Every structure is written in C-alpha cells, then in structure tokens.
Computed example of a mutant assay.
Amino acid sequence: MTLKVLVVDDSSFFRRRVSEIINGDPRLEVIDCAVNGREAIDKTVQLKPDVITMDIEMPVMDGITSVREIMRQQPTPILMFSSLTHEGAKATLDALDAGALDFLPKKFEDIACNRDEAVSLLQNRVREIARKGIFMRRASPASSTLASSPALDARKEPTLPKRPLTDKLNSAKPTPKRVAGSFQASGKRYQLLAIGTSTGGPVALQKVLSALPANFPIPIVLVQHMPATFTAAFATRLNGLCKITVKEAEDGESIRPGCAYLAPGGLQMMVDGRPGSSRIKLVDGGDRMNYKPCVDVTFGSAAKIYGNSVLSIIMTGMGADGREGSRMLKSAGSTIWAQDADSCVVYGMPQAVAKEGISSEDLPLDRIAERIKIELNLV
C-alpha cells in the first residue's frame, strides 16, 4: 500500500524538491502540499495523510503551533525540517515537545555525504515514522504519550527548586519478556546507568529522566543520535526539566553520581579510568563510523571499565546501533533492557538487542523510570 505524504513548507523550491524525492519511492506518494501551518491543519483533517513533512518557520502559522494543533485534532506522524543552528535546535526540540516524531536538517548536504545517500535517508525516515501512525490514532489525542508534551508531563509532579549546575554536581540468551504488573529488584549492585537511543529519543529521554529523583545514586551516560549543534541545547533543556543534573559531556571531566552526561554530536564518548574515579573521554567521530556519537562505542567502553555493574537500556531508534556494545556488556555480566515495540517511534535498535537475546526485559516507555527506581531501591 502506498503511504500518503503531505509536504508543508512556504518555499516553493523546497516543496518541489522534497516532493520529487518522496515520489521517487514507489511506496510513497505526495498527495498535496501546504504553504503554512494553518493550511497544514486543514489539509491534514481533510486528507488524513500517513505522514507530514513540516517546516518550522512559516507565515500565518508556524510549524510548532501547527504540530500541536494537528496532534490535538488528527494525530499524524510528523517529520520536521530544521536548520543546524542553536536557534534551529531549540525550535526543533519545541516541535518534538509538541508531538513531532523526528527531524532532519533542511540543507540536504548536512544529511549525508552525497545526494543518493540523502535521498535514501529521507525516504527511509518517512517510511519508518509512518509505521507509528496506527498506534497514534488508536489513542485519543488527550491520552497519547506522543501527542502530549513531555515538558508539561514533567510539571505534573512536584519538583524541587532548581539549583545551579555546580551545586547539583556536588550533591550526591533468554528471550526478552514483556513486563507486566509489578516489578521486583534483582538485588544486583550498579555503578553506572547507560542509555542509547536515536529516532524518537529526545521525547523518550525527557519522559524517563524527568521522573528520576534528585538523589539518584549513580552516574548516567546518554547517547542520542543528534547533530553537534543540537546536543548542547538538548542537554540544557533536559537539565531544566529534571531533578538530576543533565549536561553535555566534556572531555576529561569526572563522572559523578546524580549527573547524566550527554554525548556531544559529532564525537565519540567513552568512559575511562576505573569505577569510583572514572572520567569522560571524547574522541573524533572518525569517517568510518556511521553514528557520531555511537552507542556501541560508549557501551563497549563501559563494559571494559565497569564490568558487571552497568544497567543499560536501548530505547527507540532506527538501525542496530547499541547491539554490539550491549553484547559486550552482557558478556561482562551487566544488565540490558529494551524498550518495547508498541511504545517506540521506531523499533529498530531495541529490536536488534531483543532479537539476539541480549536484553532481559521488554519495557514500555511509561514504565522505564519506575523500573529503574525499583531496580536501584529508590522506592
């Protein structure tokens, strides 16, 4: 069945360019275009596309407002196009908060090394997020996790007053099973929490991290596939939403309990040293690596330093990054969980570890934080 796509952009050149690429895939068809956010809402309700591609800055109504209203009226998978600037990063994160599922750079030369690769990536991304449409439409807009803002969700629970960053830092082969009902702690002792994710990850990470307590007892390393200009803005946003400290990782800094270190875009993040006095090591991304940062690199280094005392989670994302790093962690005796298929935007990375029998639990997004707290005896 051909997937119907609505292209939204105020630039006639960009609408034509995106439409040509999408229509170049026989599995996709551009059914119409819209030139502003207001028109996008009307055509979404009328035409019920399977996927929408959306610009952020447009006349009459901007893309963020349009996404929010579409999620209220006719929940639909939306792929945002963004500029790779600091302001573009903030706007894109706002769009993801509003309910968009993923984003790509608006300059195609920033997507990939050559045109063919960029074309393939855009087509694949549209097809992948289209699969989420059926789950989005099963839920009412008011109850849909993906249609609501994680930022608003985080504010529903009482939060402690925010402290300066420095103050916060100085405080303290089985088949994966579907987890249901109550959880029980395994009794293992952990010294590091490691999370890897990609497509759909920004929203998922906000939901999980914002539910962790300020006294979280171990450090956290985060790998989210994201451009270099986005990670600093994303870390700042997470830090404002969370009780724990969240920051973009810096080379050579000590790893402290209660702090989450987000791998910078364009670099590889490793854990170095020894448990109790470990530190962050950042190295050049390298041309041979498909992902910069790469979950496999970070997880592999954690396995060498922490051995059997890592709690690791592979969350929503396209591809199989994290599978080999998780395999190394499991061989060292550490614990690997995977996000379940229904709650993923793209069930690629979690499926890769689940299919290989590497992960031991299959967790819905809205229960991952609860499961972490029980495992670490925080409740």
Rank of each mutant, 00 (worst) to 15 (best):
N36A: 04
N36K: 09
G37S: 05
G37I: 00
G37L: 00
E39W: 11
A40T: 00
A40I: 00
A40L: 03
I41G: 02
I41V: 15
I41C: 06
I41W: 01
I41P: 00
I41S: 03
D42H: 12
D42R: 14
D42N: 13
K43C: 10
K43Q: 13
K43N: 06
T44V: 05
V45G: 03
V45M: 09
V45A: 10
Q46D: 15
Q46F: 14
L47F: 13
L47S: 08
L47D: 14
K48W: 10
K48Y: 13
K48N: 15
K48I: 12
K48M: 14
P49Y: 07
P49G: 10
P49D: 11
P49C: 11
D50S: 13
D50R: 02
D50P: 11
D50F: 02
V51I: 14
V51E: 03
V51F: 12
I52R: 01
I52D: 03
I52E: 08
T53W: 04
T53D: 10
M54C: 02
M54K: 01
M54E: 01
M54L: 05
D55E: 09
D55V: 04
I56Y: 00
I56W: 00
I56E: 01
E57H: 08
E57I: 12
E57K: 12
M58V: 05
M58N: 05
P59V: 06
P59Y: 06
P59M: 07
P59F: 09
P59H: 10
P59I: 07
V60I: 15
V60A: 05
V60P: 03
V60T: 10
V60H: 10
V60W: 07
V60S: 07
M61R: 10
D62E: 12
D62R: 02
D62G: 12
G63R: 01
G63H: 01
I64L: 08
I64R: 01
I64D: 06
I64E: 03
T65D: 09
T65R: 08
T65L: 14
T65S: 15
S66V: 04
S66N: 04
S66W: 00
S66I: 05
V67I: 15
V67T: 15
R68P: 08
R68N: 11
E69N: 05
E69H: 05
E69I: 11
I70L: 07
I70E: 04
I70M: 03
I70S: 06
M71S: 08
M71H: 10
M71I: 07
R72N: 05
Q73E: 13
Q73H: 12
